[in-house]
Amino acid sequence: MSAPQNKPVNQRAWLLILPVFICVAFSAILPLMTVVNYSVQDIISPERRVYVGVEWFAEVLRDEDLHAALWNQMKFSLAVLLVEIPLGIALALAMPAQGWRASVTLVVVALSLLIPWNVVGTIWQIFGRTDIGLLGHSLEALGFDYSYTGDATQAWFTVLLMDVWHWTPLVALLAYAGLRSIPDAYYQAARIDGASKFSVFRYIQLPKMRGVLMIAVLLRFMDSFMIYTEPFVLTGGGPGNATTFLSQYLTQKAVGQFDLGPAAAFSLIYFLIILLFCFVLYNWMQRLGTAQKEGANHE
């Protein structure tokens, strides 16, 4: 009996990914290469460019405004995660599991996600005014001297509150989807064992939500680290530089001052910062999940 002959493999299927590759090239790779090109050149005129190496990178890293913007960004992103993740989980746990109430609750919770970013800033700009805004007028009536345009701390907390209002529903919906994917058999076993609600949450719900919570943490971290429109509309980066984040710093460099070389260099630094933090955060969450599994197995 003769050995089976190897049939030629049809490689034409690779042509199906060609449109995707072209789209990615035009939307990501080519712009990135353009930014890399600008970051190592001094563009004196459209016809004259001088290679400067890493000069723009060194200049940007020495900029004190960048240090202040990075500090504001780190505080804001950390606060977003510490507030929105637990609040989203609590909201998901409180939502109805089934029936028409669940459908109505999902629609109501998702309403803020449908509002455009610039409109969100405008809403809170009016909401925080002491003359016509509900928030500002209520705080003033209670005796608080509230002014998100004049006080740096109040401006920062107003931007944080705005982001919590806008994006906590995303965390809640992801956590809700994770809760609904847990089989009823786990809850039945917990009831038979007489487990408390906290034990059910710790040993059943939270481990089963780990995947969607990882997605929620990464999405919220990346979005908060790239926030621009909402604080720009609400405070314009002020008062002073209190709410000037990295994206606004970049815009000021590229558009306001038209320093294309430093702006391109900082764009690459900005990209690497986000990539590094997401990598560290992802690996930390993976190790945390592995440790939880090993602890549960030992118990």
Rank of each mutant, 00 (worst) to 15 (best):
D65Y: 06
A195N: 01
P169L: 09
F277M: 14
T149G: 06
P31H: 07
G136L: 01
V164S: 03
G88D: 02
H298G: 04
N37S: 11
L32C: 12
Q205C: 08
G236Q: 01
F127N: 08
A68N: 09
L160Q: 04
M1W: 13
G236M: 00
R129N: 10
F266Y: 15
F144K: 06
R129H: 05
L135F: 15
T243D: 07
E55R: 11
S147T: 03
Y228N: 03
D259S: 08
V104E: 05
I17K: 09
A155S: 12
N6S: 13
W156I: 02
G295L: 12
E64I: 09
N241A: 07
V120T: 01
R49N: 09
Y186Q: 10
L113M: 11
I85W: 02
L111S: 14
P8H: 10
S103Q: 12
A28V: 15
H298M: 10
T34I: 11
I29F: 14
I29Y: 09
L135W: 09
F201T: 00
G88C: 07
E55G: 08
L30V: 14
F245H: 03
A254T: 10
R202C: 12
S147K: 00
W156K: 07
I269F: 08
D163H: 04
Y228Q: 07
T168V: 09
Q188C: 08
A265D: 02
M74S: 14
S112M: 05
I227H: 01
V280G: 04
T229F: 02
Y203K: 09
L174E: 05
L61E: 08
I115F: 02
R202W: 13
L93F: 05
A177R: 08
I43M: 12
V52H: 05
V36C: 11
G289Y: 03
G178M: 05
N10W: 04
L142R: 07
T229V: 13
W284N: 11
A97D: 12
